[in-house]
Structures are given as structure tokens and as C-alpha cells.
Computed example of a mutant assay.
Amino acid sequence: MVFHEGRVRLSGGRECQGEVEIYFRQDWRRVLLDSWSLSEASVLCRQLGCGSVLNYRSSPSTTEHKHMCVTGFSCSGSEDHLGNCSSAQAEPVNCSSGEQLYITCSEFKEIRLSEGCEGNLEVFYNGTWGNVCHNQMDDETVNMVCRELNCGRRGSLSNTEARVKSAPNWLDELKCRKHDSNLWQCPSSPWGQNRCDNHDEVARITCTGAIRSDLFWFYMFL
């Protein structure tokens, strides 16, 4: 496979969030944070198809990167690709000379249940945690959520009120199919478009094997 200068990827196994790596001088190199600005971060998210930049910071990883890093890219912020930015000052440097870059773009998405393996189903999108409505949700979708969260392979669905009434209702009419491999492949209404009442139509899921919080102490003292 032939790689071109300025190609980017994010390590860490998450789409649209991770440690930044740039293909530079025939190798993948991480980036030093102190050489980066909002302009370069905006181009990177755009190049990845991940929307706009939410934040960039030092990497949470504590493992030392054994390869060389890169510094010196300079963008105006309007470019579609880092290869279109100036790399006249770009050069490989020792990674130990500074903190490495970690970025989160607006299309980064994550799911959680509010009480571990049970609770309100909430999704992180565009920098904000929001609700998922229960309309049209079925067992296939519920089971997908439990599997993705490593909370067993099955669960049960009920409807409840939002934990934060002002939180956006990000997803509605979410209905997974047997061939979907993760929740983001499942059909739904467009982001933010819903027919959901935050007082009683938010999805609540209890995964198989999850111990209800109100029964925890009861079991402890049996």
C-alpha cells in the first residue's frame, strides 16, 4: 500500500478521537502538541471526515512512543488536507521532547447507560451527552447496546424520564438489524430530529446480569 505525505490517522481504536499520527517521510509519526493550533486541528478533523474540532490536548497515554514525532505543519484552517498545508518547517523530532497530540472531533460518538449496565441510554455527540428515545426500539437494538457495553448479550427495555430535561434528544426511531455490527450502523431518525417527550419517552435499558442499584445492599446483607 502506498501512503502519501500528510495522510492522517487516529490511534486508540476510536473513530474521530485519539492520538494523532501523520505519514511523513515514509513513516507514521505522532505530533507534538506545542506545534499545533486550532487551524491544523480543524483541517485534520475535516480530512478524517469527522466534522469540526471539539478540542485538542496532550495524550492521556502514559506509554512512551518509541518512534520519532513530527512538528512544523502550518495551516490556514481552510484546507481539506494536511498535504495542502505548508510543511516547509516540518521535521521529525524525538517524541520525548514534548507532549503528544490527542484530538476529539465533533463526529466522535459514544454510548453509556447511566448506572453502569442499566439506566437511561445516553449518547455523546457534537460535544454533548443527550438522550435516546424509545420509539420503535426493539430487542435487537437493546441487545446491541448491552453487547457494545460489555454488559452481557441481552437486556430489557422500558421508558422513563430524562435525567437532565434540558439535554438534547439525539436519537429517535433507533432500530438495529441482525447484520449491524455496532449501534452507529443502525437506522434512526436524523441526529436531533425526534418526536420524544423528555418526561416519559426516554429509553431505559437493563442488561442481563446487571444488579439493580436498589437491590445491591439487600443482596449484600442476605
Rank of each mutant, 00 (worst) to 15 (best):
F3A: 07
E5A: 04
R9V: 04
S11H: 07
G13L: 05
E15L: 11
E19W: 00
E21Q: 11
Y23F: 15
F24H: 03
R25V: 04
D27T: 05
R29E: 05
R30C: 03
L32I: 13
L33K: 14
D34R: 15
L38P: 01
V43A: 10
L44A: 10
G49R: 14
G49V: 01
G49L: 08
G51F: 08
S52I: 06
S58I: 05
S58N: 09
S59C: 09
S61D: 13
T62H: 09
T62Y: 03
K66C: 00
K66E: 09
M68K: 15
C69V: 03
C69P: 14
C69R: 09
V70E: 01
V70M: 02
G72L: 12
C75H: 13
G77R: 06
S78Q: 13
D80E: 11
D80M: 12
L82I: 15
N84W: 12
C85A: 04
S86G: 10
A90F: 13
N94A: 13
I103W: 04
I103H: 00
I103R: 07
T104N: 07
I111G: 04
I111R: 00
L113T: 09
E115Q: 15
G119K: 10
Y125H: 15
Y125R: 10
N126D: 08
W129M: 08
W129G: 13
G130I: 00
N131R: 06
Q136E: 11
Q136G: 02
D138N: 15
E140I: 09
L149W: 06
L149K: 00
L149G: 04
C151Y: 01
C151M: 06
G152Q: 01
R153I: 04
R153N: 13
L157N: 00
S158D: 11
N159C: 02
N159P: 00
E161G: 15
V164P: 00
L171T: 08
D172N: 12
K175I: 00
K175Q: 14
K178T: 08
P187F: 00
S189A: 14
Q193M: 10
R195L: 08
E201P: 05
E201W: 12
A210F: 07
S213I: 04
F216A: 14
F216K: 13
Y219D: 05
